[in-house]
Simulated assay, not measured.
Amino acid sequence: MPLPAAVLTTPHSGYHWPGSLLSPRNRRFFEGWYYRVSLAEEGESFAFMYAIEDPAGGAPTSGGFAQVLGPEDGRTYQLFGGVEGFWATPDRLALGHRQDPPGPAGYLEPEDFEAKVRRGYQATDSLNQGCIEDETGEITRWCYRLRPVHGWGAPGRPVATMGWLSYLPVFEPGWQILMADGLAEGWIEWRGRRYTFTGAPAYGEKNWGGAFPTQWFWVQANAFEGSPGAALVAGGGRRGVLWWEESVAMVGFYWAGRFYRFTAGQEKLTCTVTPWGHWHIEALSERHRIEVSGTVAPEGGIELLAPTANGSRFVCRDTLKGEVRVRLERRWGDRAVLFDGRTPLGGLETGGGPWDGEWRISC
């Protein structure tokens, strides 16, 4: 069935495998996608994570998973053994994986998917839908529409998150913010309850490559109290650059119709992150300063699956109930505080390691 027209075309939206120099068939490869929706009235959020590894098939690591992080940092997931039933398009954001029932892979109208597919998912820039069963037999189902507001870059002009070098086989893995902010409408069935929502803040990103980060952190929020339209993404990690590794970080923030970007190599960034519990990022450009802080109780969060060199493993810890604060200042001319807001629905993550205590990045 043909896909509906794309709503937002962001660089790197399409499937990267096989991509000649970027992802030849004879090496390890993974691609992962992340969708999130925040339900402020419920004080909860949901995140949906999809991944495929070694899609040529036949390797011990060939396969995929669908994973959901839900209220009170609850987790459910389903592994898809093998790559049969997986599909994705190279020219736009559209993918899916279904193995029950087996059959030709491809996009289905949401009504057909709900009627025919017992275990699987499909996702585009305007839809996220699925149904999975965990090892206990518990079933989780979801279907919601998306209306993207911002990709990554100046409003209406999405650009590559990692810059033009992301089109070359230089950085591993690649990372792209697909939707820094959007609106969601639909429903999610989770642990005996059906959540329905309209106009809920939504977010999406992806990563891909043939190498895997050894250590990373991430902060995301777009449900700031009393500040609709504010959207934050910040992250950092040790990534492969040709034959060496480097530590990098970046911050992006949408507010009042403008996009503020702070990236390593162009602005000064300082990050201090503990193995779990505290995140602090400060970035300076010639004209602006932004400070991002995130906190969560030591007992908060849960381990999540992520692709690794040895297949999918529980190598990161996440929460969707972090306390995140952002303060943005203008440093030139009429100096002023442009934004100072917080949310109890921040997404926080640390991964990889082992972490040797507090991690500091200055770039």
Rank of each mutant, 00 (worst) to 15 (best):
Pro155His: 04
Gly58Pro: 02
Arg360Phe: 10
Gly103Asp: 01
Ala309Met: 14
Asn207Thr: 11
Arg317Thr: 02
Pro148Ala: 02
Leu69Ala: 01
Asp340Tyr: 11
Ser13Tyr: 08
Leu284Gly: 15
Phe259Leu: 02
Trp243Cys: 12
Phe29His: 04
Gly82Thr: 00
Pro275Trp: 07
Phe65Gln: 05
Thr263Asn: 12
Leu345Pro: 00
Glu303Ser: 13
Pro11His: 03
Met1Val: 08
Ala59Phe: 11
Pro307Ser: 04
Ser293Thr: 15
Ala56Ile: 10
Trp218Ala: 00
Trp355His: 01
Pro201Thr: 04
Ala306Asp: 09
Ala230His: 07
Ala211Phe: 05
Glu172Gln: 12
Phe262Ala: 08
Phe217His: 09
Asp73Gly: 00
Val37Tyr: 05
Gly174Met: 07
Asp112Met: 14
Phe314Thr: 11
Gly235Lys: 03
Ala56Leu: 10
Val233Phe: 10
Tyr203Met: 03
Ile132Asn: 01
Cys316Asn: 10
Gly357His: 01
Trp243His: 12
Gly74Asn: 08
Val251Gln: 09
Gly32Ile: 08
Gln215Asp: 11
Ala51Asn: 13
Ala297Ser: 09
Glu245Val: 10
Leu338Lys: 06
Glu84Val: 03
Thr274Gly: 01
Cys271His: 14
Trp190Leu: 11
Asp134Ser: 03
Ala202Phe: 06
Gly352Asp: 01
Met250Gln: 15
Leu269Ala: 10
Thr136Gln: 10
Gly265His: 06
Gly352Gln: 03
Ser126Tyr: 06
Asp73Cys: 00
Trp142Glu: 02
Arg27Phe: 08
Phe212Glu: 07
Lys321Pro: 05
Ile139Phe: 06
Glu245Ser: 14
Arg331Phe: 04
Tyr15His: 15
Ala47Gly: 03
Leu232Gly: 00
Trp17Gln: 02
Thr89Gly: 09
Pro71Arg: 04
Asp54His: 12
Gly85Asn: 01
Asp112Lys: 12
Arg75Lys: 08
Arg28Val: 14
Ala66Cys: 10
Thr124Gln: 06
Val149Gln: 04
Arg27Ala: 14
Asn207Met: 07
Gln99Pro: 09
Gly43Tyr: 04
Arg331Trp: 04
Trp17Pro: 01
Asn222Phe: 01
Ala297Leu: 10
Ser62His: 04
Gln176Gly: 00
Gly85Arg: 00
Pro307Trp: 05
Glu225Lys: 04
Ser20Cys: 08
Glu299Trp: 01
Gln67Pro: 03
Leu93Ile: 08
Pro213Phe: 05
Ala309Phe: 09
His12Gln: 12
Arg98Ser: 10
Asp100Gln: 12
Ser362Arg: 14
Ala5Cys: 10
Val37Thr: 08
Thr89Asp: 15
Gln99Phe: 04
Glu53Asn: 15
Trp355Ile: 03
Gly229Ser: 07
Trp208Leu: 08
Glu267Asn: 11
Phe171Glu: 03
Thr295Leu: 04
His12Leu: 09
Arg313Lys: 12
Gly351Gln: 03
Thr343Lys: 03
Trp175Leu: 02
Ala283Asn: 02
Gly235Ala: 05
His12Ser: 11
Thr9Pro: 05
Ala309Pro: 06
Asp100Met: 13
Pro101Arg: 00
Pro173Tyr: 06
Glu42Gly: 11
Asp100Pro: 06
Gly153Pro: 00
Ile290Met: 10
Leu183Ser: 08
Trp244Asn: 15
Asp134Asn: 06
